[in-house]
């Protein structure tokens, strides 16, 4: 690999943009295609498919064996609510190598003692996102856990508009029906609100905050690893 290709890959990752390294295994020729360049690339269809799935792999191009290294930005997890479930969830998310931010305007909840070493922002989601917390993108997972529509709704709206690959919200089916009605009033379509995982988490009968945290993280991993054409494309 040429040094400048390596530098481009690292720079794109730092800027949270996807890139694909295309290696001709027969001749050894290599090039980097940035996310924004895929549409105009001769291999756009193939590259687009790999980007959507997030998977590296071999392909056959005009009789030559080609390897595509797909580099998607690292996943960020944004938790809305410095609540008990979030306290259980943070160390588990760290073990999964997710970078984490917790947002809660209620200063009684958002204390460093409750979230040691975690990027914690005691602001409303609208202020925090794009400010103290980088703006959401499609490589983000957002879980709204406060039960308070004043806090959760703005974050959910931002997450759906940014096409975050995972958007989940705590609350019963009845609570969620009310939420969907409010989000529809805010101008979101059924296809957007239909993407919210609610009640949040895989149905494993979770009871304790730690168990609920496991069910949420398992759902996030599934959303990340399952072919995500449609979800993130």
């Amino acid at each position: 690999m040429q040094r400048d290709h390596l530098a481009i890959l690292n720079a794109e990752r730092a800027a949270r943009r996807a890139a694909i390294l295309v290696t001709d295994l027969d001749g050894g020729a290599q090039r980097v295609v940035r996310e924004a360049e895929i549409a105009a690339d001769p291999l756009s269809e193939l590259l687009g498919r790999h980007l959507a799935s997030g998977r590296s792999g071999l392909a056959e191009v005009e009789g030559r064996s080609v390897f595509l290294t797909v580099q998607a930005p690292p996943v960020r997890l944004v938790l809305i609510g410095a609540v008990h479930i979030s306290q259980a969830l943070c160390p588990m998310a760290r073990a999964l190598d997710l970078s984490i931010a917790v947002i809660d305007p209620r200063t009684a909840f958002a204390t460093p003692e409750r979230f040691p070493g975690i990027d914690l922002v005691a602001e409303w989601p609208d202020e925090a996102l794009g400010g103290a917390v980088p703006a959401l993108d499609r490589y983000c997972a957002v879980a709204a856990l406060t039960h308070d529509p004043k806090i959760d709704d703005p974050a959910l709206i931002a997450a759906l508009r940014a096409e975050c690959f995972y958007v989940g919200a705590l609350g019963s089916r009845k609570t969620h029906a009310g939420r969907v009605a409010r989000l529809a009033q805010a101008g979101l379509g059924a296809a957007q609100t239909g993407r919210i995982a609610a009640p949040i988490g895989l149905n494993i009968g979770a009871v304790s905050p730690a168990e609920i945290a496991v069910s949420i993280l398992a759902q996030i991993v599934a959303a990340q690893r399952a072919p995500r054409a449609g979800a993130a494309a």
Binding site: M1, R3, L6, A7, N10, F67, Q71
Partner: peptide, 20 residues
């Protein structure tokens, strides 16, 4: 990949292996 770039800058010989 960050290490590969940093090591290269330090003047070390570097190789990258990728599961294909």
């Amino acid at each position: 990949l960050a290490a590969a770039e940093a090591w290269t800058r330090e003047g070390r010989g570097v190789a990258l292996a990728t599961v294909i």
